[in-house]
């Protein structure tokens, strides 16, 4: 099986879907002539032309709204945000326009749109460029929220997102674009709303998604050497969440750690813990522990940034804690 980067996987997904359906177009800052701020759209302008690969001004609120309006009139836009930090300027269009349209029109106007771009912290980018917005977006009914961690997942999920008739948010990892993985030659789709078991184990569940799924796999591999076998549930889709996959895993392991990139308060982990206590209360042998970013804006200094981020060491400590090992 070919091994390609996360960036190339997304590029393939865009290329394949734009070839398949001429209503699909890509719009955003630097997506065309510049080939994408992170080169995800490399070569697409040349292949599809400027009508379908549209360089926008720096105007997130405006071009996100243009995407929504065009979707109401029959197109299938893919709106690229250079980062989700900038997408805050456009959050009104995601929350008030895209997510509400079907409902407040009594089912008359669906909005088949994809909002995508890098999310989460990279390295020393400071407070305004290092934020993970999964929980903000997943809070909103009317949209789907995806968080792929591997090239395989990124391609299969983005293709499904583009074909979905609802607004779909794709949170890519800024640190993931260069990571590599196996992606088959043949076409495939990954269904939205289904989690993926990334490692099989009976001792403890780690429930996670996105970039943190890679951390969880490292943790599982490392702990296997100590004869601790972790079940890694990669949610892939944050909303709608595959709660059955969580329950199945926790009922097997009786212990769980929830690992996320974002902040603690009202985070994704808070919701996962709630699902677990509601449905798996009697299955638990220990309280569920959460691993997340420190409750501070991201510092610039390298040492402080490292302390602030969730990582493998913190996750290993959490797994050992729920297993009452030291």
């Amino acid at each position: 099986m070919p091994i390609i980067t996360y960036r190339e996987a997304l590029n393939q997904a865009l290329r394949e879907e734009m070839s398949r359906d001429d209503r699909v177009y890509l719009m955003g800052e630097e997506v065309g002539v510049y080939n994408g701020a992170y080169k995800v759209s490399k070569g697409l302008l040349e292949e599809f032309g400027e009508n379908r690969v549209v360089d926008s001004p720096i105007a997130e609120l405006g071009f996100a709204g243009i995407g929504v309006g065009s979707a109401m009139a029959g197109l299938r836009p893919v709106i690229e945000f250079m980062t989700w930090n900038f997408a805050l300027l456009a959050i009104d269009q995601v929350v008030n326009s895209a997510a509400k349209m079907l409902y407040m029109s009594g089912g008359q106007f669906n909005v088949p749109i994809v909002f995508r771009g890098p999310n989460g912290a990279a390295l020393q980018l400071g407070a305004q460029h290092s934020q993970a917005f999964e929980s903000w977006l997943a809070h909103i009914p009317g949209i789907k929220v995806l968080s792929p961690g591997t090239p395989y997942d990124a391609k299969g999920l983005l293709k499904s997102a583009i074909r979905d008739d609802n607004p779909v948010v794709v949170l890519e990892g800024e640190m993931l674009y260069n990571t590599k993985g196996e992606v088959p030659d043949h076409e495939y789709l990954i269904p939205l709303g289904k989690a993926d078991r990334k490692r099989e184990g009976g001792d403890c569940s780690i429930i996670t998604s996105g970039k943190m799924a890679l951390v969880a796999m490292q943790v599982a591999d490392q702990l296997a050497k100590e004869d601790i076998h972790v079940d890694v549930i990669d949610l892939l889709t944050i909303r709608p969440m595959d709660v059955e996959a969580i329950y199945e895993s926790v009922r097997k392991t009786n212990r769980a750690v929830v690992l996320e990139e974002g902040w603690e308060i009202c985070g994704i982990g808070a919701q996962v813990v709630d699902f677990i206590q509601r449905e798996c209360f009697d299955d638990l042998d220990a309280p569920v522990i959460r691993v997340h970013q420190a409750d501070v804006p991201m510092p610039y200094a390298k040492n402080l940034e490292k302390i602030a981020k969730p990582d493998a060491a913190k996750t290993i400590a959490a797994v050992k804690q729920v297993m009452y090992r030291s």
Partner: peptide
């Protein structure tokens, strides 16, 4: 909704 109107024009 003003960008939405522009988006309809775009379509």
């Amino acid at each position: 909704h003003v960008p939405l109107g522009a988006g309809v024009g775009f379509a």
